[in-house]
Design a protein around this nucleic acid. Sequence first.
DNA 1: TTGAAAGCGATACCAA
DNA 2: TTGGTATCGCTTTCAA
Lengths: 340, 340
Amino acid sequence: MKNNKVSLAEVAKAAGVSKMTASRVLRDEGGFSESTRDKVMAQVERLGYLPNRLATVFAGDKKSTFVGVSIPDLGNEVFGMVLEGIDRKLGAFSHQSVLGLTQHALDQEESWIETVLSWQPAGLILTGRSHTPKSLVMLKGAGVPVVEIWDLNSSPIDLCVGVNHFDSGYDMGRYLTGLGYRKLGYVGTSHDTANAATARMNGFTKAVQDADGQVTRHLCLHDVPGFYPGYYGTEQLLSSGAEIEAIFYQNDNMAVGGIHYCAARNLSVPGDIAIAGWGDLPILSILPYRVTTVHVSHLKLGQVAAEVLLASLDGTPTQDVHDIGFRLVPGATTGQVGRI
Amino acid sequence: MKNNKVSLAEVAKAAGVSKMTASRVLRDEGGFSESTRDKVMAQVERLGYLPNRLATVFAGDKKSTFVGVSIPDLGNEVFGMVLEGIDRKLGAFSHQSVLGLTQHALDQEESWIETVLSWQPAGLILTGRSHTPKSLVMLKGAGVPVVEIWDLNSSPIDLCVGVNHFDSGYDMGRYLTGLGYRKLGYVGTSHDTANAATARMNGFTKAVQDADGQVTRHLCLHDVPGFYPGYYGTEQLLSSGAEIEAIFYQNDNMAVGGIHYCAARNLSVPGDIAIAGWGDLPILSILPYRVTTVHVSHLKLGQVAAEVLLASLDGTPTQDVHDIGFRLVPGATTGQVGRI
DNA sequence: TTGAAAGCGATACCAA
DNA sequence: TTGGTATCGCTTTCAA
């Protein structure tokens, strides 16, 4: 006994009862007298006893109340809000998030999965649908519910809560081509696990091609999709020589970067360049005009993910795949071609 | 044995050795032959054995590799970056963050502390210097290192990594009054644990009063300090009737909200209103002019916090209080009074 | 209503 | 180089 930690046995001894009786009192399990309860609780108070939940889980051979949550990065609000949604909901049901920042790298996710599983978590919430083969083996053998979030996945490992990114990109492509644009650009970043963004880009490209248009892409490598990459990504795209009428960005922060680039170069939006973002992020709320974007509720996505997991732990049946949905928000940064 | 989990005993039996031998092989402790190692590892592979770290911690009566990390919210990048700094550093040394979103409420922090301590964490990182009396008792009795971050605290529970918020506010007040402003405004939000922001506000106010100026404050209640509260907080401050020459905001996102409000009202910055923010947040990187702000490295703050904790676990002596520092960045949104 | 004993999965310690 | 046994703090099970 090296930690000066007080154990249940000590409490029991001090209270003059057996460990079992003390244990029953603490779990409020019933089957003890009021006077016994008072004796025990008095000692708990006096000794400052804190239970060792490791031992509890261990002895009961049950799961802990840990939920492993893997998140690619926290450099912008997107995944921050997802995580906030998850943790708030989990916390309300006394579960704890064990965080894993994967930095968009599958092998980092793999080693984190191995570690977190060794702590006997109650369940896992993973961002993204791609995992290494070894990860898949571990996840399937873990015997705990796994919720894959962000990307909608028709055949998830277990459960899935997400958005149909391809469709949202496709809708934006259809919207912009519907306005008459044919020479389109895409500006985003490039990451191992940025499948969702890639799906949006692919959906967008497909829609544009379906309308006989063209997409010129520019991906900023090794960057998180923030304001500044949006700014210089726009610069690089436009200076590539390609003729561009409208640009779709990986997210709104990048789009705002693009808007500021245009302002700095005296390019009118949408007159010279139309601009569309994704996510309906907070920055849009203060611009003096509405930016064309795709609304997605990140907080809700996280909350639903947590709910689905908790329901699964509870044994409550739910559907395997939850589509959070999205909504294209037309704005003033895209216009009718030829009518500006 | 309800989980179909494979235990060390099964691996050992399958390999034809004792538990102890298998344990030694897995920990690569030495003291076994190559052939033994091969036999054991073959079975580990075949059975897909994953160790139960609960048992390890428990048996060794040691601490886990959990680090409890309490964060007020993740609604903007500020604490997201702090958390990213912490988790990256911890991850590199194979520790895991157990997240606690307190939503700026001390009683939420308290109940989270109680829970997380019951998991025998290796240490704790807490945002803020205020804690409930019960929290303090638990923290002091926990016997694990506690790092309080964000607010610099000359008498921390244990260790502290932060910024001198009061001084940063004071410097900004001195800077603005040095430019000739005397009728100042402050726009922020109000939270239980927003002591850091309050300290900045107080420092600012003190400096302004020292220069015989006045500060009119406007606090947006129940809001996280983001773009939109900055926008309408500015509106409310300016419509309060007070004469204002310059406004200091709780952070840059709010300041950008203020800048946009001014643009929408055709108020010139800094001609009609000077604006200063705090934090040097990403949004500033795309504005066509430099915004007067205070630079703080949030990522570094998190990294140093993790380093200090790891050093303490390691037994390496470090100083108790680490000042991350700040740097006032003069910009174009504040000017010389009368010279605009 | 209460308690004694066994056991969870691993490691520490001592023997062989 | 290998293995037996006790042990961590708590819960389960069975008896009293």
